[in-house]
Write a protein that binds this DNA or RNA. Structure first.
Length: 334
DNA sequence: AACACCTCCAACCGCAGTAAT
DNA sequence: GATTACTGCGGTTGGAGGTGT
C-alpha cells in the first residue's frame, strides 16, 4: 500500500510504505528523545526519510494513543454532527474523537459516511435533503396528482415540470400505486412531508458553521424534554434538533443487529424507517408508504405488522412501499 | 483460473500559518 | 519588514486486497 512505485526521491530519501524496521527506529528515537525537530530527526534516527514523512508516520500511525479498528456508532454519529457544523475541518473533528487521527476520520468520511448519507438522500456537503427529492415531493403532493379519481399519465408529470426520467419513472410508479389505495390519507401525509421539507429548506438552506464555543455549549432549549418528541421549528433537517455531542437518542444498536444508519438522520431520512424500525418518526411524507410504528424498536427484517395511524398497514401499501423503495434504490436514491 | 473493476486507506503533495532569525 | 524553517492541514493518489464476471 502507499504511493509512488519509485520508493526514493531525487535526494535518495525513501518514500512509500514504511517497513517494520523503520517504524521501530522511529519509535525508539522518539521514546528516547521525544518528537519535534522533524527535519533533523530522520538523520539522527538513522532513517532515510524526510522529516515530513516521519512526522506523518508518527502522528497517523505510530503514536501510542491512537485507537485503531472500526469506528463505533457513537463515533460515527459524532463525526456527522461535527461535520455538519465544522465542515471538512478534520483536525478539529479529530480533536473531539480521542485516539482518532484527522487522516483516519477523513478517510472514513470519504469511504463510508459520505456514501451512506448519499444513499439516504442527504447531501453530505450541506447535510440537507437532495433537491431532486424535494422536486419529486413537490410534484407528488400537488392536488391534481393526488386526486385518485383523475387519470394520470407521464405526460401529466412532464407537464408539471418533472423532466428527470428517473424521477419521472419513480413518480409514475408511485402514483399508479396511490391511485389504487386510499388517496386522502396519502394526500395529507404527503402535504405534511412537503411542508417539512420546505420548512427545513427555508429555515436552513445552507447550514452555517458554528464556532467551537457554540459547539461546546449546545442550546438545550432546542429540543424537547422527550427525546422522541421532536418539534419542527429549528434549523435541523426536518425540524429536528439535537445538540452537538448530545446523547444518542436514536435507535440503539443491539449486539445481534446489523449496523444501522446514523441516528443523526433517523428522524429526517424517511427511508430509514424502513430500515431500522423507525423509532423516532417525525411527520414524514409518503407516510403510508414508508412509515413504521413510532414507538417501535423493531429491528431490521422484522416480521411484525406495520401500523399506520393506528391501523395495520394495508398490504397494498406495503407492496407500494417495496415498489417505491426498490425504485429509489434502482435510481440511486437509497 | 484469469481478468476487470471496486474499495479502502496509508502516504504524499502543496499550501498556509507561525516562529525564529 | 523580509526571509527561512518548521509545522499543520486538507486534498489527492495509487497500490493492496476484495469482489464480480
Amino acid at each position: 500500500m502507499g504511493r509512488s512505485s519509485d520508493y526514493s526521491d531525487k535526494n535518495g530519501l525513501k518514500k512509500g510504505p514504511w517497513t517494520a524496521e523503520e517504524d521501530q527506529k522511529l519509535i525508539d528515537y522518539i521514546q528516547k528523545y521525544g518528537h519535534g525537530r522533524w527535519r533533523t530527526l530522520p538523520k539522527n534516527a538513522g532513517l532515510k526519510r524526510c522529516g515530513k514523512s516521519c512526522r506523518l508516520r508518527w502522528t497517523n500511525y505510530l503514536r501510542p494513543d491512537i485507537k485503531r479498528g472500526k469506528f463505533s456508532l457513537e463515533e460515527e454519529d459524532t463525526i456527522i454532527q461535527l461535520h455538519r457544523v465544522l465542515g471538512n475541518k478534520w483536525s478539529s473533528i479529530a480533536s473531539r474523537l480521542p485516539g482518532r487521527t484527522d487522516n483516519e476520520i477523513k478517510n472514513y468520511w470519504n469511504t463510508h459516511i459520505k456514501k451512506k448519507l448519499q444513499r439516504m438522500g442527504i447531501d453530505p456537503v450541506t447535510h440537507s435533503p437532495r433537491l431532486d427529492l424535494l422536486e419529486l415531493s413537490s410534484i407528488l403532493s400537488s392536488s391534481s396528482l393526488c386526486n385518485s379519481t383523475e387519470q394520470f399519465n407521464t405526460s401529466n408529470l412532464f407537464g408539471l415540470g418533472l423532466m428527470n426520467p428517473d424521477l419521472l419513472n419513480l413518480a409514475s410508479t408511485l402514483l399508479s400505486c396511490q391511485s389504487t389505495t386510499t388517496p386522502q390519507n396519502l394526500h395529507q401525509q404527503d402535504q405534511s412531508f412537503q411542508q417539512n421539507l420546505l420548512q427545513y429548506t427555508v429555515d436552513d438552506p445552507n447550514p452555517q458553521y458554528l464556532n467551537e464555543t457554540q459547539i461546546q455549549q449546545p442550546n438545550l432549549e432546542q429540543f424537547s424534554s422527550n427525546p422522541n418528541n421532536f418539534s419542527c421549528q429549528n434549523a435541523e433537517p426536518f425540524g429536528v434538533s439535537r445538540p452537538i455531542l448530545a446523547p444518542n437518542y436514536g435507535c440503539q444498536e443491539t449486539e445481534n443487529e446489523s449496523r444501522i444508519e446514523p441516528s443523526v438522520y433517523q428522524n429526517q431520512a424517511y427511508f430509514n424507517n424502513r430500515m431500522n424500525g423507525g423509532s423516532c418518526i417525525a411527520n414524514m411524507g409518503f407516510g403510508s408508504l414508508l412509515t413504521t410504528p413510532s414507538s417501535s424498536s423493531t429491528p431490521l427484517n422484522s416480521s411484525s405488522t406495520n401500523y399506520v395511524n393506528g391501523c395495520p398497514e394495508d398490504e397494498r401499501d406495503s407492496y407500494c412501499s417495496n415498489l417505491f423503495f426498490d425504485s429509489l434504490n434502482a435510481i440511486g436514491f437509497v
